[in-house]
Structure formats: C-alpha cells, structure tokens
Design a protein around this nucleic acid. Sequence first.
RNA 1: GGGCCCGUAGUUCAGUGGUUAGAACGAGCCGCUCAUAACGGUUAUGUCGCAGGUUCGAAUCCUGCCGGGCCUACCA
Length: 516
Amino acid sequence: MSGDKRFYITTAISYVNGPPHLGHAYESISCDVIARFMRLDGYDVMFLTGSDEHGQKVEKTAQANGKQPQQFCDEIAALFKDMTRLLNISNDDFIRTTEPRHIRSSQALWKKLEANGDIYLGKYAGWYSVRDEAFFAEDELTKGEGGKFLAPSGAEVEWVEEPSYFFKLSAYGDKLLKHYKDNPDFILPHYRRNEVTNFVKQGLTDLSVSRTSFKWGIPVPGDEKHIMYVWLDALTNYITAAGYPDVDSASFKKFWPADIHVIGKDIIRFHTIYWPAFLMSAGIELPRRVFGHGFLNIEGQKMSKSLGNVITPKSMVDEFGLDQVRYFLMREVPYGNDGSFSKESMVNRINSDLANDFGNLAQRVLSFIAKNLGGALPIPGALTADDRALLDAAKAALPDMREAMKTQQIHRMLEAVWKVVGDANRYIDAQAPWALRKTDPARMGTVLYVAADAIRILAIYAQSITPAAAEKLLAQLGVPEGKRKFADIETPIVGGTALPAPSGVFPRYVEAEGAA
RNA sequence: GGGCCCGUAGUUCAGUGGUUAGAACGAGCCGCUCAUAACGGUUAUGUCGCAGGUUCGAAUCCUGCCGGGCCUACCA
C-alpha cells in the first residue's frame, strides 16, 4: 500500500461457453473508460481481461461440437479477443486460464491453501443426472413416476458421492465480516455489500474445490485424479497476470493488490466471499474493491436467447458507431444499476449530447476559424472575465470528475464534462463572434481562441469515453500527441498554429431512407 | 418467513430536516444565424406512492399499508 500512482483493474474473465454478447461489451467498455481515465490522470495502469476456459460445460460443449476442448477454447477465446479490438478496449493483457503461467499459478495457490491447513479430503455428495452431467440441489428436483427424483430437464437423478477436496471456508466468516466492516467500500454498490454481509452472517459451509468426474481443468498438485474447482482456478487469474507465484517479481510488487475487480452482479459471491477467503488463507493481500455492475435490458425485456433479442456488440457498433455506443452505455445507465437499451434512447443520446452539443460545438468553432482566419488558430488579446470564466469552468470540471470516479460513478463524471459543453455553447452565443467579425476582428480572434482552448480541454477529457473521436478532434485542434493528458489542460493551445480542415466527429443519426 | 433497495415533473433521474422541490431529454414561445435543420433565452408541468406519527419545520426521521426489484431461507 503506498501513494504511488499505479492502478490495476480487471474485468471478469469471460466463460467461453458461448460467443460475446452485449453484456460482455458493457463490462469491457466500462473498465476501459476507467482504465483510460486513470492513464490520462497520470497513473501507470494495468488493465486485465481474459477468458475462463475450464470446466465441465466447456468440455461438454466442445464435445457436442466435435472438437477437442483446447481447440474449442482457442476458437471462442479468439472471438473475445476480436471483441476487445472491435470496442477499442485498451487492455494491457488478455489472460487465458489454459495458459501455462496460469496453471502454474493456480497450483501454487492451491499449495499455499493446503500448507495453511485449509484443504482436506472429503466426499462431495449430491443428486447427479448422468444425462445432464450435472449435480442438482434438492429444491430443483421434481418427483416423477415411482417416486424417482427428476432433474429440471426431466432426466432421472441418482445420489452420487465422489471424493473431493474441501476448502475450510467456514473458518473465514468472521474475518470476512471484519474486512467488510473495516473497508466500507470493499464492495460497491453498498446495497450489494449489505446482501453479502447478511449472507455471510448466516454462516458459511466448506467449499468443495475439486472434482473427479471430468477432466477439463487444472490437476490438483499431488493428486492428479482430481481437477480444481473451476472458480478457484478462474479467480486466480487476477494474481497470475500480476506475476503470481513470483511474489517478489517487480510486476507483482507493483500491481498487486488490484485496485478494483469489476464484475457482473451475478458473480458477486464468488468475488466477495470465496476469493478473499482464498487470499487470506494464502497470506496474499486482498483486492481493494469489488464493483458489481448491473445488467442491460433490451427494449424493456431481459436479454435472452429464448426471446431472440440477444444483441451482439458488432451489430450495435455497426448500426450506431463505436464511440456512440460507448458513450450511450456509460451515460444512460448509472453505473451499478441495471440499465435498459432502446433504439429511441440511443438515438436521443447520439443526436442531442454528441452531435448537437459537443460535435456541433467543435464544428461551429473550427469551421469559423477555417473560413474567417485562414485556418490558423488566432493569437489572443487580453482575456476578459468571460473568457477566464469559461476556461476556469473547463478546468474546474476535473476535480469533480475525479471525485465521481473514486467510486466509479462514470455517469457523474460524464455529467461534469457535458456541463462544460453547455458552458462553451453559451459562451459562443453570448460573445457572438459572427457579429465581432465586422466590428472588432481582434476580439473575434480572442473569442475563437478561448473557445478552441475550451474544446481542447473537453477533448482531452473525452478521450476516456470516446477515444477515437476525441483524438480526431485533438488532431483538428493541432494538439500534439504528447500534450493530451489531464495534466496538460493547463498548457494553453498555441495561437498561430495552422489547423487541418475541420470535419465533424459526431454525425447525427439519421434513419435510413425507406427504413421502417 | 427474514433482510436490503426503490417508488419525486410526460420520461430518466438528483435532492437524507429549514426559504417559493431541481437537472437533463421531450413540449410551447422568443432570439440568433458561426455551426451537424445545430445553438441560446424563456415558460409550463409535480397533492415528492398512500395513511398516520415525531418536530417550530419532513420528499428527507419513525410506524403501518400498497406497488416494483433484489438477496436469502423454508415449506420440503
């Protein structure tokens, strides 16, 4: 723990049972915005994403597709990697749980748990359906003919016992509760923390952490008939990528503990109970925060295969544009809540916030400069109180943005930025450079200079959310690539600089002619 | 059954005891014309879920009820 400016953020790793959907995209984009924001703010960031590739379901799905598990994983993992490129995700690493570094790391962690006396051999018992190749809880079962129990699929289940290693999770309840209490922001949003706390208070039972009934997983060190429980394996990815088990390595010392694990609300328990307990047992520092984000509804309905409304990231990006999709998802949905996507709300956001307010702001100023000042930034005269007020407002947004991002309130960060967009539009209307053109050309130049400098600051801010458009805009303003960090907002734009011909960065969304 | 969260303008939400409850989008009117038919100004809209209570004073605290969401347990 130190005040050094480094930041380690992770997404959940995606289970390769199926291709990426909008939910994966949402999580990746949100983490990317956080990661970019921290880089812009001068942090040395490690941003990790990846794929979770072991387990019975993958083994089975591969088989159903007539493929070896590894080949199947390679294919699906490639789709997830493609998605990160499609979405302009700035991850520094992409970890796959089938990689040697991860197998080594997982086995090392296992040995630590074992050495600490938290692993013991017992029996895993439960109702098993051979046809489904899965265990079921008693309340999932129904009674069929002759009193036999049936799985939800209708398949017969039988009582099965197999040897299994267990982790003494029951010994960690009080330690976990103390950790939640001492670190109130360990679990965000707060109502999730309440849920987890209540769950832990009810008492924890030991966790089965190995299986012998299938093969696709990481062998238990010293007893290779067993493979490790897929969650133990999966969670370990976060330390693997930091360099575990080489705890003395530069990267591990620098980046662990992670600052934040961003996950979906469905896997909070694994990240806030199991994972911290494993780390405590192994004597490894805990991550500083686990943030559970919500799910997206589509036109008011849950996204599901059976409803046939699953949206792929690609189809959405193709229709609306990448930066537009990124902006919409981050602005429309308070981060942590469930959100809803509808075409109507998407088009509203694109056209009002991006095209009309921000895009048009840049265009009205840049094209004015191009037409009336020969395409070179004007050299300003003395600044008036109004001029300084706009530039001060633009700079003053940064502390508000930082405050919002301390607790991942991405939508609030964006509100702070767009408030300045409004200020800049008002400034231009009030100063009316088109009138000054005839009466006071020197003052006109100053106004345009100030407006351009405010737009520069806004574009620097916008790099976290709409990176491609923001970079295009910065290029149009002649801002060098080395002068685009948050710290650079204090360095004014250089008057006299020749600018390239302007072109819009956020086009309006117009319904295609003849479309329904 | 236990617990948590939410119910505020047409819509999405902000607002945790104190003057006439706010923002954005949408709507009406006015202005401007540099700009992506964009921008700015202005107006209007609310019994702050319902009913009680505490208080000099409640959207804000307490109780009950109704409605929505979630976690969890049990009935088995």
